[in-house]
Amino acid sequence: MNTLKLELRNTWKSIVIGALAFCGFTFFILAFFPSMQTDAMKQLAGAKLEGIDPVLLAAFGLGELFDFTLITNYFGYVLQYLTIAVMIFMMQQAVTSLVKEETDGTIELLYSKPVSRTHIFVQKGLANLFMLLIVLAALDVTTTVGYLLFTDFTLTAAIKETSIFYGSIFYVGLIYLSVGMLLSAILKSSKSASGVVIAVVFGTYILGIIGIIVEKLSFLRYLSPMEWIKTQKLLNEGILSVEWLIGISVIVITLTAAHDIYKKRDLRL
């Protein structure tokens, strides 16, 4: 547990700041919801969106979320961008978790202690998992409070809907964390982490959009985890069997490969 505690002690500040920023943004967006229900806003949004190609609307997650007077549509639309931000933030933590110790030279202390590399890998993975849970739990609580304050949802209904949202984001988060751990075991320096993280998260997001716009390439949706949890699709169909299969396979394969690479990795100081 020492490595886990050490990791949490080293990262808790950035996690708290990140969680506060995400929660503040979420609350701010939910506080705007009552104003979306006015007739003037309905006409304004409707007039602007009706002229746009439905495929393009679908590509940007507006396919069936047209009516912003419904909180599920309104928040669901914002949630996809919030998810991208959370994934970038959490994946950044995962990508730096192993390689940053080497870049900073702090790994020399850990490697001189009676712990195996497997132990370090597992404890760092658990720390990443714990941090993801903390951020999503904070967001879930904030969203539930926002639903209660700014909509007519009951507590039970609000908890049910937000649990579906953040439960699915947790699953997608696990996939990005696993890929992040693999990249952390491969990268030579943590300095390139930010670029790689943005490329992976936006890359998979854009693959999903291409999958919607180009029918022949619709299979690309399966390579875009964020496409699996778009609000209407999630509420209507849930996460499909094939998406569970792909996601779990990616988690198992990337974590196994990351562990194997990390165990054989030469120490660079």
Partner: peptide, 15 residues
């Protein structure tokens, strides 16, 4: 490593 103490040349611990 359980019974070995190590002092590195360039000490870079958690800042």
């Amino acid at each position: 490593k359980g019974f070995t103490g190590y002092v590195p040349s360039d000490v870079r611990y958690y800042r």
